[in-house]
Design a binder for these strands. Structure first.
Length: 552
RNA sequence: GUCCCCAUCGUCUAGAGGCCUAGGACACCGGGUUUUCAACCCGGCGACCGGGGUUCGAAUCCCCGUGGGGACGCCA
């Protein structure tokens, strides 16, 4: 049992799953599957302030969508639970006691302000700060007294006094010199364990054999090893994977979304296009909260609020979290395939893979050492290919999920119509494309927004040539029989022929009349999808609008 | 600033001393197809960060430099 393979993914419940986190989860999941081992999901909720209500459900939802289901987790249970750190507090206390008794850890009473001042002084003197271990360690009595006096009491772990070498399967041996190591807090003043402490205890108790995590944790590992040694724990195999970056080389962060929206808000405020009240209104929050968000880079509004503001501003914030990609209309299998390739490669120029194929191809040794940039263009291309390759049933299923989330007018379509619409969208890149291309056909007439550019170019130009065409076409349209894609297509073509016009001369004005834009499936297909009644109605409506505009 | 990691086309990467005139994918450029958007087809451009070694031979090994990234929290 002790020799069996077990990996874990341990997010903190702060919101939807970050794409980088998803990749870490995927690697852990793949490795466990590959080895016939188990995959554990543990919730690291030891920061009372940062925990967000509902975040755990979001993570679960994202993982489910991707298909990375855990074998053990807070919601599936398992032999080594509980899987929420906040429910394991007594366990940590027990081990902290052991460290204290062994003299491996000690009480400390510094206030956050004092610590900040020490760090500040060190910076002013241009030396690096290192916590100075007191020569005489505080006793239990002194700790009790400090507590009684209202001072914060934490427990610090003694850093090892010799060099530590981290054995890493990706990076090789990494040695950190003893003087770089510092005594670190393992139990906070509020009694909660810190990440370092909880991780080590849980990985041991949960029999984790391989720790696959982001490279930003590399320098934490000596701390974890010190804890393992002091507690007599096993040493899991470590694999630190390179960090996922933005195309510009900065770290991919949730804040990027806020930054993008914030920038646009600022532009609009400056140009007088918007007021702070508009912002608050769009977000659905009060003005004070809106102002705080606007002025401080570290303040975030929730995902839904941000999405509303972004929509009002007509900007698309970068997709960062798994849920962003889902809502943007990507297939989960594409996301999985693509993120697997960010930092890992099976070799032999292999790129397109199903999850099952990845399982059989995966190995930690083939994970790279270089930080990799996340290229959305390539993801888009992957998704395009995946949609083209997907079976109609799969596509329909995935689209329904998208339509529900994005409140598409296509959400309620019956199977036959939806499959027809999807077929008409062959070549789609994301489901958002489908929504753009055929969504309006299923929306109420008044949802049609006539784009000024389209109207000018296709209808109004050359003394209203497009409108004239519509007027001529309307009576013919009324006689089209039967109303199918093939038949209406033929009818329009012969209509054009009889007038010595090109197909585009009729198709484009019709497209604009029906959708308000120049984007839609082939014209016959468009007519079939929208239906006879709606088609005639929208053409008449479009012509009536022109008359009204001319009257002004 | 200190410590750590990394370094092949613009991007993700293949490459584990001769198979490399460095391969693939995306992007890009040119052309084709086309009633719009997209898709699709054909062709093209394009990289071993620099300098020293080691070796008969280096993208591959070593050293230095440079560049990028990460960590330095009672965050995880």
């Amino acid at each position: 049992m002790t020799t069996s393979i077990k990996t874990r993914f341990a997010p903190s419940p702060t919101g939807h799953l970050h794409i980088g986190g998803a990749r870490t989860a995927l690697f852990n999941w793949l490795f466990a599957r590959r080895c016939g081992g188990r995959f554990v999901l543990r919730i690291e909720d030891t920061d009372v302030d940062r925990n967000l209500a509902g975040a755990e459900d979001k993570i679960r939802e994202d993982l489910d969508w991707l298909g990375l289901t855990p074998d053990e987790s807070p919601w599936t249970g398992g032999p080594d639970g509980p899987y929420r750190q906040s429910e394991r507090l007594d366990i940590y206390t027990q081990y902290a006691r052991r460290l204290l008794d062994a003299g491996a850890a000690y009480y400390a009473f510094d206030t956050p302000e004092e610590l900040a001042a020490m760090r500040e002084r060190a910076r002013a003197e241009k030396r690096s700060f290192k916590y100075a271990r007191p020569t005489a360690l505080p006793s239990e009595q002194e700790a009790a007294r400090a507590r009684a006096e209202g001072r914060p009491v934490v427990i610090r772990m003694k850093a090892p006094d010799r060099d530590v070498t981290v054995p890493d399967v990706i990076l090789g041996d990494v040695t950190i010199r003893a003087e770089e190591l510092e005594d670190f807090v393992i139990v906070k003043a509020n009694g909660y364990p810190t990440y370092h402490f909880a991780v080590v205890v849980d990985d041991e108790l949960m029999h984790i054999s391989h720790v696959i995590r982001a490279q930003e944790h590399l320098m934490n590992t000596p701390k974890h090893m010190a804890l393992q040694d002091a507690l007599g724990f096993r040493r899991p195999v470590y694999a630190h994977v390179p960090i996922v970056m933005n195309l510009d080389g900065t770290k991919m962060s949730k804040r990027d979304k806020h930054k993008a929206v914030r920038t646009r808000v600022q532009e609009w405020l400056k140009s007088g296009k918007w007021t702070r009240a508009d912002l608050a209104g769009a977000a659905g929050i009060d003005e004070a909260a809106a102002a705080r968000w606007l002025d401080r880079a570290d303040v975030e509004m929730d995902g839904e609020q941000l999405a509303r503001v972004a929509a009002a501003l007509d900007v698309t914030p970068p997709e960062i979290e798994v849920y962003d990609f889902r809502r943007a209309g990507y297939l989960p299998e594409t996301v999985l395939n693509f993120i697997a390739l960010v930092g890992w490669s099976p070799g032999e120029d292999r790129e397109k893979m199903t999850l099952d194929e990845m399982v059989s191809l995966f190995s930690i040794e083939r994970i790279g050492r270089t930080s990799a940039r996340f290229d959305r263009e390539k993801l888009l291309a992957f998704n395009t290919d995946a949609c083209a390759a997907a079976t109609p049933a799969r596509l329909m299923d995935a689209f329904r999920d998208y339509a529900r989330l994005s409140r598409s007018p296509m959400a309620g379509l019956d199977d036959a119509t939806l499959s027809r619409a999807l077929e008409a969208c062959r070549g789609l890149r994301t489901f958002h494309d489908v929504d753009v291309k055929v969504g309006v056909l299923f929306a109420p007439d008044d949802a049609v927004k006539y784009e000024p550019d389209a109207v000018r170019k296709v209808l109004a130009r050359h003394e209203g040539r497009g409108y004239a065409m519509l007027e001529a076409l309307l009576p013919a349209l009324e006689t089209f029989q039967p109303w199918t894609a093939e038949s209406t297509d033929t009818s329009i073509k012969s209509f054009c022929e009889s007038r010595g016009a090109k197909l585009a001369d009729a198709a484009q004005p019709l497209r604009v009349a029906l959708t308000g834009r120049t984007i839609s499936p082939a014209i016959g297909e468009t007519l079939a999808l929208i239906g006879r009644e709606a088609a005639l109605r929208r053409v008449r409506r479009c012509l009536a609008m022109r008359t009204r505009a001319a009257g002004n």
